[in-house]
Design a protein around this nucleic acid. Structure first.
Length: 535
RNA sequence: GGGCCGGUAGCUUAGUCAGGCAGAGCGAUGGACUCUUAAUCCAUAGGCCGAGGGUUCAAAUCCCUUCCGGCCCGCCA
């Protein structure tokens, strides 16, 4: 088996053998901040969707926001008075910030933004709209009529015994608005209504069209049929024997007469030793937090290169940098040198609409620090160095990633700051180093702009007798040209000491070309001291 | 209690469905380039494929048992 096929292509291949058109579905309940595991779901789905399209198979990607589910409890981030909404559908209660149309939207909106950043463009459905507009009505009838059969499936498959009062349909009480405290007592298929009594004392009847919803284990298979779902990734929580996929599979076949979708079970993304955020509080990292440090394309790459059933250990410190390097190396490699598999990986990681800049992460780490984080200054440097600067939104995104990474995870060696005044360490510079800086200042002042590579060559070539720098130094020191021996290392060191006050620093070419040339001239002259005036 | 997924080089892993010499990247080591900040190029080392048993001419791969790690399940996703 020399040729290795990417998992997304394998899935695409299998499902396209079964169906002409495929619908790849994802579904998430927006009852709180949508977290990292959910993002794996959508990226996984998107990879399969893309694989299908790439292989010329018609397919659709959908995201269904389960916003008709009841609020389960007062979450830690909610004010106490939300206790009165527990049991109400989250599409029907107010948003915590007061600015969104309802509670669910508060969490759906940022999630949609995150998806956009990741280049994922699903057809978005909202459960409340589907229910209210009658999409579910036939399924509700089927479920109610076949209540006993469904109960039997649940018992046989999951080993649980539904009580006599159990119903696949939860009515929303017209008085108190809760769907968790009602009991279905009868229904009318012709009128499409359901009668219920509620713990609040109210009893009445609701329409099947928006008056309530199927409970999860029945809702899921119903939805497969309603939306024609043929592939769906879901977390391993649903994948256990007796779990909701198991029961859903049978309910789909036996009640709704629908072939269940191809399952893709995926593992969680774990946050490596970042105790405070995940383990101690039990609160999972939000997608937002993740996108704070990881460029979207790199995040896609991480998820897509890992088979869904493997854990992903996400470590935002050094390993993240390794990951970014790995990705950028692949991206810039000559096409013939990339293996077929890696090419595919790269393809699937890129996506239309995703922010791609040609600026390497590490280079931005340098530029950002040179510019002290000032956006305009960064743009100026980028232009000077010759990067594409049209796409400001993407550049801004990258800057934000770099900034957050520097603040939160960067190792000390990655950090530096250009000193406002000449570092005191500069007084230790030897004669050759001073003469070199003096020469460098002179050359910079006579040239227009120097590229990173030119700077680099300037330093490197200084050790050759024919070079301008070498001759300058000989002249300044007033010695014979054979008396001078230059080690480029000392010259690089001189540059870092004069600017940063440290022995080492970021890659010299990039670094110098990022700095303002007038600054360089005066700083190098200053560091060279009287050595220069005499010259 | 029941179940799911993983365990392959120091690390991250491919290969497991369909048995046929165990592959890659990073790291390490050596060398080249005497440009270096985790630079580039070349080379090398590194594996009882978690353990035990079984099936087979042949097992990382299939079957049984077992250990380790992660997780799920009480219809509330």
């Amino acid at each position: 088996m020399a040729e290795v096929t990417h998992w997304a292509d394998i899935v695409a291949d299998e499902v396209s053998n079964k169906h002409e058109k495929n619908v790849v579905a994802t579904g998430i309940t927006p009852s709180g901040h949508i977290h990292i595991g959910n993002m794996r779901e959508v990226v996984t789905a998107d990879a399969v969707y893309k694989a299908l399209n790439d292989n010329m198979h018609e397919s659709t990607l959908i995201y269904l926001a389960d916003n008709f589910d009841p609020l389960r409890k007062v979450y830690p981030f909610l004010p106490e008075h939300y206790s009165k909404y527990v049991g109400n559908p989250i599409s029907e209660i107010p948003c915590p910030c007061g600015k969104c149309s309802n509670y669910a939207e508060h969490f759906v909106k940022p999630f949609l933004v995150s998806m956009e950043k990741l280049g994922i463009e699903p057809k978005v459905y909202r459960a409340d709209e589907l229910y209210k507009s009658g999409y579910y009505t036939e399924a509700i009838k089927d479920a109610l009529v076949n209540k006993d059969k469904i109960a039997k499936i649940l018992t046989e498959t999951s080993g649980r015994e539904p009580t006599d009062e159990w119903s696949p349909f939860n009515a929303i009480c017209r008085a108190c608005g809760k769907m968790t405290s009602t009991k279905v007592i009868s229904f009318d298929v012709d009128k499409e209504t359901v009668d219920y009594i509620c713990e609040c004392g109210f009893s009445g009847s609701v329409s099947m069209q928006g008056g309530g919803k199927l409970n999860w284990r029945v809702d899921w298979p119903a939805r497969w049929k309603i939306l024609g779902v043929t592939v769906e990734p879901f977390g391993k929580d649903h994948a256990s024997r007796g779990g909701s996929y198991d029961t859903g599979k049978r309910i789909a076949k036996e009640i709704f007469n629908y072939e269940p979708p191809y399952p893709i079970v995926y593992e969680w993304i774990m946050l490596a030793n970042k105790g405070a955020m995940s383990s101690s509080t039990g609160i999972v990292v939000s997608i937002d937090d993740m996108l704070k440090v990881v460029p979207p394309e790199v995040l896609r790459y991480l998820i897509i290169k890992t088979k869904p059933e493997k854990h992903i250990n996400f470590d935002p410190s050094i390993p993240l940098l390794t990951l970014i390097d790995e990705y950028e190396k692949l991206k810039t490699m000559e096409i013939e040198k990339i293996s077929t598999y890696n090419k595919r990986l790269l393809d699937l990681s890129k996506a239309t609409g995703i922010c791609h800049t040609d600026i390497p992460f590490k280079h931005m780490v340098t530029i950002y620090q040179v510019a002290h984080g000032d956006f305009e200054k960064i743009l100026e440097i980028l232009e000077r160095v010759g990067y594409e600067t049209d796409n400001r939104r993407c550049i801004q995104e990258l800057i934000t990633n770099v900034q957050n990474w520097l603040e939160m995870y960067a190792p000390p060696y990655a950090k530096f700051s250009v000193k406002e005044t000449l570092p005191s360490k500069a007084s230790n510079l030897n004669k050759v180093q001073r003469a070199f800086l003096c020469s460098l200042a002179k050359i910079i002042s006579t040239k227009e702009e120097l590229s990173g590579e030119q700077y680099h060559n300037l330093v490197y070539q200084a050790k050759e007798k024919e070079s301008v720098v070498y001759k300058d130094i000989v002249q300044i020191l007033n010695i014979h040209e054979d008396e001078l021996a230059i080690n480029p290392k000392d010259l690089f060191k001189a540059i870092y000491i004069a600017t940063l006050g440290t022995d080492s620093g970021p890659k010299a070419g990039w670094f110098l070309s990022s700095l303002d040339r007038n600054f360089l001239i005066s700083r190098f002259n200053e560091a060279a001291g009287d050595m220069c005036n005499e010259g």
